[in-house]
């Protein structure tokens, strides 16, 4: 391994996580690569009160989609539903195709550009999982916006400069 000899070795400040790329949030308010899954929340197209919780597991590529009350999505008929497709597309917009492919452990291959194309490269199978974990992470995510602004100095943020001017 040569990974300790590179240019990053003695640098304190470098962008390890590229900033999320801007995307419209109306359809898919929440996407993340966490807990070993690509997971997120997709707003229902017909009912403003309803959301779908969709996920694809890294490695095994098991997928699932249900309402936040664990009612299975009617669109799952032996293949990923349109919510999973939206989730994958928005994940690729937010993180870039390479990062999503690396996390899911799939070979993106040449020319793969959208999440739907990436999904088609998975040897995916349906496997029900509980929506609760993902949904509670979404609620926690939203809760960040409820925290009041603060004048507490956070010296640790000198390790995290804002970056990406002129993107």
């Amino acid at each position: 391994m040569t990974d300790t000899d590179g240019a990053a070795r003695r640098r304190s400040v470098l962008a390890v996580v590229p900033p999320a790329r801007p995307r419209k949030l109306a359809k898919v308010p929440f996407v993340e690569l966490a807990d070993g899954r690509l997971q997120g929340v997709v707003s229902s197209g017909s009912d403003i009160e309803r959301v779908y919780v969709s996920s694809v597991t890294a490695g095994s590529h098991a997928y699932h989609c249900s309402t936040n009350n664990n009612r299975p999505c009617g669109g799952l008929r032996g293949a990923p539903c349109k919510h999973l497709e939206s989730l994958a597309d928005e994940a690729v917009l937010q993180y870039g195709v390479d990062r999503v492919a690396r996390y899911l452990r799939v070979d993106a291959g040449e020319g793969t550009q959208t999440g739907v194309e990436l999904l088609s490269r998975l040897d995916a199978r349906h496997e029900p999982t509980s929506a609760a974990v993902v949904f509670s992470r979404f609620l926690r995510h939203l809760a960040y916006l409820e925290l009041p602004a603060s004048t507490t100095v956070l010296p640790e943020l000198h390790w995290f400069p804002s970056t990406g001017a002129g993107r």
Binding site: P19, A20, P22, L142, Y144, L145, T152, V153, L154, L157
Partner: peptide, 14 residues
């Protein structure tokens, strides 16, 4: 120095 800050989520940037 004057410092102010807020919590946010990844999709709020720029």
């Amino acid at each position: 120095r004057v410092t102010v800050g807020a919590a946010k989520v990844a999709t709020i940037g720029g």
